[in-house]
């Protein structure tokens, strides 16, 4: 059985985000990029399934410009068998991405798709569920535990106020949450091996999908700057200010 893992290249979560001067987006020039952390968890889970002998092949796929190949190589270094780069310079909405992934699922003949629950840049948390809807496959989102047995998959999902365990029949889509696993480190021998693993490039225009944007970004603005705090000389003054200026005391 083949597992397809979708990964997105995002700004490294440790980088301080800066909004572009013209408010058209955030600054990505010369900014450190990394694999979306939830996708890293998805890759790790797929590799663990393979190490347990439950799946035969792990394929990572990413959509974006040439630079995503670096992220794909990281996926290969972690243990994926092959990679697919869908090449485009455009930034697509979740729905367009889901449409592309649907075709990739069909092309690769994958039976299980694992994705991060959301990308930390757009924070939409939509691609996985849209993909499941397009494929008309069952979906388990925000997984914190996955148990695969034959064509049945038991998934523990993080829901508001607790955990929910569901059973899916493959083929299926799963999105990962933080507690699912701790991703491993890329070891040097595996990084070297990754260099010779197959990475196929497919141009976006070879898909029968209209690139028309169904979503437009109108404005990206930084959060308002917090006002500096003040120091008060006494408790009385503090109470006074809380009452008359902040108006939080009666």
């Amino acid at each position: 059985m083949k597992v397809l893992v979708a990964i997105k290249r995002v700004i490294d979560p440790y980088v301080k985000i800066r909004v572009k001067q013209d408010h058209s987006g955030v600054e990505t020039q010369n900014v450190k990029m990394a694999m979306n952390p939830f996708d890293e968890i998805a890759v790790e889970e797929a590799i663990r399934l393979k190490e347990k002998g439950l799946v035969e092949e792990v394929i990572v796929v990413s959509i974006g410009d040439k630079s995503v190949q670096e992220t794909l190589r990281t996926g290969l270094a972690l243990g994926a068998d092959s990679a697919i780069h869908v090449e485009t310079d455009q930034l697509f909405s979740s729905l367009l991405i889901a449409k592309i992934l649907k075709q990739m699922v069909q092309k690769t003949g994958s039976q299980l798709i694992i994705l991060g629950k959301q990308a930390i840049d757009s924070d939409n948390a939509q691609t996985g569920s849209m993909l499941a809807a397009l494929l008309e496959w069952p979906l388990a989102s925000f997984a914190s535990k996955i148990m695969l047995q034959g064509d049945k998959c038991q998934v523990t999902c993080e829901v508001d106020g607790g955990l929910q365990t569901v059973e899916l029949t493959l083929p299926a889509v799963i999105t990962t949450d933080l507690r699912l696993n701790t991703p491993r480190y890329a070891s040097l021998p595996n990084i070297m091996k990754a260099k010779t693993k197959p990475l196929t490039v497919i141009p976006f225009n070879s898909f029968d999908i209209s690139p028309n944007m169904d979503m437009h970004t109108i404005d990206v603005s930084p959060p308002p700057v917090r006002k500096a705090g003040i120091k008060v000389a006494s408790v009385q003054e503090l109470v006074e200010k809380l009452r008359h200026e902040a108006k939080v005391l009666l």
Binding site: M35, Y185, A186, P189, M192
Partner: peptide, 23 residues
Amino acid sequence: LGLTESCINSSSINDAIISQNMA
């Protein structure tokens, strides 16, 4: 990578992991 690989081949280094992101 090249230097590390040759160190591993000559057994002066046994294993290596490399940071892939800031975390």
